[in-house]
Amino acid sequence: MSEPLPPVGEEELNGYVDGQLPPKRWAAVERYLAAHPDAARRVATDIAHRQALNAAFAKYSTQPLPPELNLNRLVEERLRTRSHRRWQIAAAVVISLGIGGAGGWLLHTQPTLDRYERAMAALEHQALASHAVYSPDRRHPIEVTAAEREHLAQWLSNRLSRAVSPPDLSGFGYRLIGGRLLATEQGNPAALFMYEDADGHRMSLVMRPMAADLRVPIAQWDRNDVNASSWIDKGLGYAILGPVPNDELVRMARQISGTQG
């Protein structure tokens, strides 16, 4: 008790103001302040300033954020403008924020990000490969033509064991030319619908069965001169791709995701 304590330094006065003083030095600093009114006045002023600055900034803690700082919106914008890592972000949003929870994106058990990545990568590969092989084929791009639309939908629905049908994209200037069965690398059936505009540009819409618990909102990407949008909903992965401007593609994707189920 009679041991002399080390003298109090200027740094310790700051530590006292900020509550960052080692507990064993509190008593020494308080004794020092009691003996030095000038230092005590400075410390009291610093504490008052600290509190006043806190109060001045406090309103920014509760104030609603401006729309451009809304994270959901920012993520959406990133998805629209970036071509890589878009579904990691999308999936992260689904997992952590439960975006569109009321709309059904959020599930009781949330799949791992890893599963989202694998599912979206598989969808992407299948869509790119199928589009690359079939869309340039002038004579046999499809197996069943649009003239047999009912049969096409029935056949593919039977093979995929779920209701699939070619959406109407005539509003975008693309008419259905027909569809075909695809094989996934796991040996399961998937479907492709092909569309063409007046100038002969072709778009592919790929539908590939997925695990029922996966949901990914519309994500945009591109490879070379092919733009694409893909998403997963209700056990089905969708990818729409072709030489179409991105914003147009997203409008198509929105229409399709709204009309399919």
Binding site: L71, V75, A92, V93, I95, S96, L97, Q110, L113
Partner: peptide
């Protein structure tokens, strides 16, 4: 990872 956006 899962809480990243929420923390952000």
């Amino acid at each position: 990872m899962s809480g990243f956006l929420a923390s952000l």
